[in-house]
Write a protein that binds this DNA or RNA. Structure first.
Length: 802
RNA sequence: GCCGAAGUGGUGGAACUGGCAGACGCGCCGGACUCAAAAUCCGGAGAGGUAACACUCGUGCGGGUUCGAGUCCCGCCUUCGGCACCA
């Protein structure tokens, strides 16, 4: 009988469906486990070979947990709002809802063909009004709690998508999605105050089991810095406030710099004698894109503000004030005290304009470069803090500054508030109306969901307004508060909205009273293990943590963090080790692999290919190798004979393999788990016959990776029931140890021979055996044995001299 | 520049708290089966060296600790990912 993957895979997928083998029950008495994978954006391209990698990995965990007796919630959905669908719809004149439906259908078929053990009865779709009703509900809560506000601001405007972007969506000055240039555009936008949660988003990482690179990237992105705001008097009258993390270097502040957008320039216009030059510089800065302004290693430019001086509060000396675009209005106070001796940017600026450089921390050479080391430096030229180390000096001077009212401690973040408006059609409408008398008013819950108007055209407008802005019938409405004439907000939400809370909906997907019941949340949450791409670390992952914390604060979820554990998979590259793309011609279609080799082979291959956390190139030949392993396992059926016990010569290796595979499935080391099973197969092949017990064990261990073929063989062998319903095996700790071991014998640390001895043999026995070995005697005869190191079961090292 | 990860055969990658480097797979070489090929099965191999052993070298580079280092310490180099004029 041949291994016919097509028939077998279809057959078992149908049986699992019919028996609801993977249904998550609301039986709250059982221990639960909630593994989560990022739900895909159903693009028109269909499934990519990258998708099955994380899905299979957590499928393995999910299947193992079920066999361990857990009630497992493993499910799937569609993050289906978004630009590509909308653009495709515009181009082909098909409604985005229909495009979405088609894409979802295709994705679902493809995913189903992989035999992933999702509970499909809990499938969700972010574009379903029953779903986005609650996305809108959460937005209203954010609004009611003062975390959503509208602000006229310069936004990142993608010239091609004709849409505003969050900072997180701008990569290297271009649009993350389409690569077109991003320019500044003033627009009134809905903003979410994620910055209010900045501290907690950093602090609470502490107790979470996230892989280190995720933690550090999030910390980096939030960018907490602790320093002081210090007021410098000016000759113009009012004080000028700066932010610094190095108050200890204040005696070295020889000039000040304000950003081109700083309001003082307007305020003191009359006192500035070179205002024309200043204005020209400001105009130049305005015309530059963010990218140009922040370009690497750019030469410093600037203009001195003539007519106003600042006064250093500690030295009482007058220092000049400059304007330069290396100081950003969006960070700190938009003004700095420049300490060229100890800040490389200030140093460059001072060199460029011949400004004085004063050394206030010794240890470097400020004529050569700024000395910014904070560990070894000693303060000099700083009357109050001379001779102190940097950290002590910082402490002392900070106290002094605060006591004298010159300034105050201040924490700053790089994180900015989240631009939440999109001027597009295919997103959740923002459920607010603008009333001339009441201002912004949220829709009452009874009017949710607010659905999109069903129209023919949804092209973006050239003036930057949402396509909804021209749909008068939809816009015109009455104010829920005063009943007067009002109109709807025409912006929609970004794609990140629906994905910021979807894991909550899985807990209770059909609830039409709440986004999920507290009972369901209490049972299922938090997510035990969340795996997803590194590209979502500062976007989706951060956003959803923010939303969750907010929901926790208003008492509608039970945990302050959504995910206990976060891991990440590496990308699958093309065979030439370049990113898979149509233009490179190195795209592999998972359907082809499933068709030719079977889903089990694809699953096995994607898990075996290499370190799960690293990117790996695709290899057609390795796929064949994985299929070969399954074929060889299949042919093993010819050698199986009845028997409830392990074949004695295989017993130790079987227990070792149970241990290895069980542990490796938990730690993302799927590649070595599979290697161990391949080894076990090789051992099985070396004996004439194997018992039912031997074979059952291999099938059980293999089942989470290759569920169809293991189920089929279980059935052919008539082992009873389904393998999916079996219990995960345990190993016997006493039986994973070999009774006899081969031990390397070293002379001065170099292996010269091996001896075979019982695992519990003494050093004396080892010594005797070693000395009986001719290869060893060659090295010991006539030499003095200085020392013997004996590590039971590991090594025997003889140190000789002479 | 800062943060993070990593450098091991022809190749993807193994190696627990320092203990026989190269598991497992691919590719390659040889053999069996075949008219032949594919598939399958059996066997082989880090490099140098030898008739064969022996032996020597070998985990990015340079030092160090240790009976013993891919693994630990110090100093570098390179690659990848993230951030970046954030004061």
């Amino acid at each position: 009988m041949d291994y016919r993957h097509k028939e077998i895979e279809k057959k078992w997928q149908d049986i699992w469906d019919e028996k609801e083998s993977f249904k998550a029950y609301n039986d709250y008495s059982k221990p639960k486990y909630y593994p989560l994978v990022e739900f895909p954006y159903p693009s028109g391209q269909g499934l990519h070979v990258g998708h099955p990698r994380p899905y299979t990995a957590l499928d393995i965990v999910a299947r193992k947990r079920r066999m361990e007796g857990y009630n497992v919630l493993y499910t799937m959905g569609w993050d289906a709002f978004g630009l590509p669908t909308e653009n495709y719809a515009i181009k082909n004149k098909i409604h985005p809802a229909i495009v979405t439906e088609d894409n979802v259908k295709r994705f679902k078929e493809q995913l189903k063909s992989l035999g992933l053990s999702f509970d499909w009865s809990r499938e969700i779709n972010t574009t379903d009004p029953k779903y986005f009703k609650w996305t809108q509900w959460i937005f209203i809560k954010l609004f009611e709690n003062g975390l959503a506000y509208k602000k006229e601001m310069d936004i990142n405007w993608c010239t091609s998508c004709k849409v505003g972007l969050a900072n997180e969506e701008v990569v290297g000055g271009v649009c993350e999605r389409c690569g077109s240039p991003v320019v500044k555009k003033a627009k009134s936008q809905w903003m979410l105050k994620i910055t209010e949660y900045a501290d907690r988003l950093i602090d609470d990482l502490e107790d979470l089991d996230y892989i280190e690179r995720v933690k550090s990237q999030q910390k980096n992105w939030i960018g907490k810095s602790t320093g002081m705001e210090v007021d410098f008097k000016t000759t113009a009258g009012e004080k000028l406030r700066v932010y610094t993390t190095r108050p200890d270097t204040i005696y070295g502040a020889t000039y000040m710099v304000v950003s081109p957008e700083h309001p003082m320039l307007e305020t003191y216009k009359d006192q500035i004698s070179n205002y024309d030059a200043i204005e020209a510089y400001r105009e130049e800065a305005r015309s530059k894109s963010d990218f140009e302004r922040t370009e690497l290693n750019k030469d410093k430019t600037g203009v001195e503000i003539v007519g106003i001086k600042a006064i250093n509060p500690l030295t009482e000396k007058e220092i000049p004030i400059w304007i330069s675009d290396y100081v950003l209005m969006t960070y700190g106070t938009g003004a700095i005290m420049a300490v060229p001796g100890h800040d490389s940017r200030d140093w460059e600026f001072a060199k460029a304009f011949g400004l004085p450089i004063v050394e206030v921390v010794s240890g470097g050479n400020v004529d050569e470069a700024a000395y910014s080391d904070i560990d070894d430096g000693i303060l000099v030229n700083s009357p109050l803090i001379d001779g102190l180390r940097v950290d002590d000096a910082k402490k002392k001077i900070s106290e002094y500054i605060e006591q004298n009212g010159f300034g105050i401690g201040k924490v700053n973040f790089k994180l900015r508030d989240w631009v939440f408006s999109r001027q597009r059609y295919w997103g959740e409408p923002i459920p607010l109306v603008s009333c001339p008398t009441c201002g912004w008013v949220p829709l009452p819950e009874s009017e949710l969901p607010l659905t999109l108007p069903d129209v023919e055209s949804y092209e973006p407008t050239d003036n930057g307004e949402s396509p909804l802005a021209v749909m008068n019938e939809w816009i015109e409405t009455t104010c829920p508060k005063c009943g007067g004439h009002a109109h709807r907000e025409t912006d929609t939400m970004p794609q990140w909205a629906g994905s910021s809370w979807y894991f909550l909906r899985y807990c209770d997907p059909d609830n039409d009273q709440e986004f999920a019941s507290m009972d369901a949340l209490n049972y299922w949450m938090p997510v035990d293990w969340y795996n997803g791409g590194m590209e979502h670390t500062t976007l989706h992952l951060l956003y959803s943590r923010f939303w969750h914390k907010f929901l926790f604060d208003i008492g509608v979820v039970n945990t302050k963090e959504p995910y206990l554990k976060r891991t990440s998979h590496g990308m699958i590259m093309g065979e030439n080790n370049e990113k898979m793309s149509k233009s490179r011609g190195n795209v592999v279609n998972p359907d082809d692999i499933v068709k030719e080799f079977g889903a089990d082979t694809l699953r096995l291959y994607e898990m075996f290919i290499g370190d799960f956390e690293k990117s790996v190139p695709w290899s057609d030949n390795s796929v064949k190798g994985c299929r070969r392993f399954l074929d060889r396992t299949w042919s093993l059926m010819d050698t199986v004979v009845p028997g409830d016990h392990y074949t004695p010569s295989l017993e130790t290796i079987i227990h070792k393999t149970i241990k290895k595979v069980s542990e490796d499935y938990e730690t993302l080391k799927f590649n070595t788990a599979i290697a161990a099973m391949m080894s076990l197969l090789n051992d099985y092949k070396k004996v004439e016959t194997i018992t039912h017990a031997d074979f059952k064990m291999l099938l059980t261990l293999l089942n989470p990776v290759a569920p169809h073929i293991s189920e089929e063989m279980w059935s052919i062998m008539d082992f009873g029931g389904m393998i999916t319903e079996q219990t995960w095996p345990k190993f016997d700790p006493e039986k994973v140890i070999d009774s006899v071991v081969e031990m390397a014998v070293q002379i001065n640390g170099k292996v010269r021979s091996t001896i075979t001895l019982p695992v519990d043999a003494s050093q004396a026995e080892a010594h005797e055996l070693a000395m009986a070995d001719e290869k060893i005697r060659v090295f010991t005869d006539g030499k003095q044995i200085v020392k013997e190191i004996f590590v039971p079961g590991k090594i025997f090292n003889i140190v000789v001299k002479g």
